[in-house]
C-alpha cells in the first residue's frame, strides 16, 4: 500500500489557492504567505505537501534528500505520479528536509544561459520560522530592502551570494514551515553579508 493519507480536500480550489501563495512568495521575496494545509506524510510540513500537490505531476522530476522517510515518496507517487531521480542536477524540483545536511547549491541545475528556466527549484522544510541571523534582501519584488531571518548557516548565504552573481543562472527556492511559505527567487540579492563574529 502506497499511502493512506489524503491529498487536497478540494483539488481544484486548494491547488489554486496554494499556487497563489507560491506566486506571491516569489513575487514578494521574504514575505510569508499562507497555503492550504493538507495532512502531510511524515517528513513534510503541511505547506510543503500542499506545494507538492500544486506543482508536481507526471511531467516533473523530483530529487529527494536522502534521509527523508519512505512515506514521502510513497505519498508523492500516489497523489502526483511524479518521477524521482538520484541526481540533483536532473531534478526539476528538489525536496530538502534539512538544509544543514543538503548538498551545496552548485549541486543543483542552474539552467543554461539560453534557457535559465530549466533550473531546479528547491522546496525546503524548516523546523520553525523565523530563526537564525538576520539578512537584508534586495531585488525585484522588494521596494527598498527587506530584512528576514532563516535558520540557515552563514555558509549557505555565502553560497547564495555567489549564485546571485551568476544571474540569470541559479535556483529558486521556497521555504516551508507549518502552513507558511516564504520565497527566495534567484533575483533576490543579499545587501551585505556580514561576517559572523562567533563563527
Amino acid at each position: 500500500m502506497l499511502t493512506q493519507l489524503p491529498g487536497f480536500a478540494d483539488p481544484v480550489h486548494d491547488s489554486q489557492q496554494t499556487f497563489r501563495a507560491l506566486l506571491d512568495a516569489l513575487a514578494q521575496p521574504g514575505l510569508y504567505q499562507t497555503t492550504v494545509a493538507v495532512a502531510p506524510p511524515a517528513g513534510l510540513t503541511p505547506s510543503c505537501a500542499a506545494a507538492a500537490l500544486t506543482l508536481l505531476d507526471l511531467e516533473t522530476t523530483v530529487w529527494l534528500q536522502p534521509g527523508l522517510p519512505q512515506a514521502v515518496p510513497d505519498w508523492l507517487l500516489f497523489h502526483t505520479g511524479c518521477q524521482f531521480t538520484e541526481a540533483p542536477q536532473a531534478a526539476d524540483f528538489a525536496l530538502i528536509g534539512q538544509m544543514a545536511t543538503a548538498p551545496p547549491l552548485t549541486a543543483f541545475c542552474w539552467g543554461s544561459p539560453e534557457y535559465p528556466e530549466t533550473s531546479t527549484s528547491l522546496l525546503v522544510q524548516l523546523p520553525a520560522l523565523p530563526g537564525g541571523s538576520p539578512v537584508t534582501l534586495q531585488g525585484p519584488g522588494i521596494l527598498a530592502e527587506r530584512a528576514i531571518a532563516l535558520p540557515v548557516s552563514h555558509d549557505f548565504w555565502a553560497q547564495w551570494q555567489a549564485m546571485t552573481s551568476r544571474y540569470p543562472l541559479g535556483v529558486d527556492s521556497w521555504w516551508f514551515s507549518g502552513d507558511q511559505v516564504l520565497g527566495l527567487p534567484r533575483t533576490t540579492r543579499l545587501q551585505v553579508l556580514e561576517e559572523e563574529a562567533s563563527e
Partner: peptide, 19 residues
C-alpha cells in the same frame, strides 16, 4: 484542465523568478 493549469503555473513561477 488541472494538468494544463499546473504546467502554466510552473511556467508563471519561472517567469516571475526571471523577470
Amino acid at each position: 484542465d488541472e494538468q494544463t493549469k499546473r504546467s502554466i503555473r510552473r511556467a508563471l513561477l519561472k517567469a516571475v523568478a526571471i523577470p
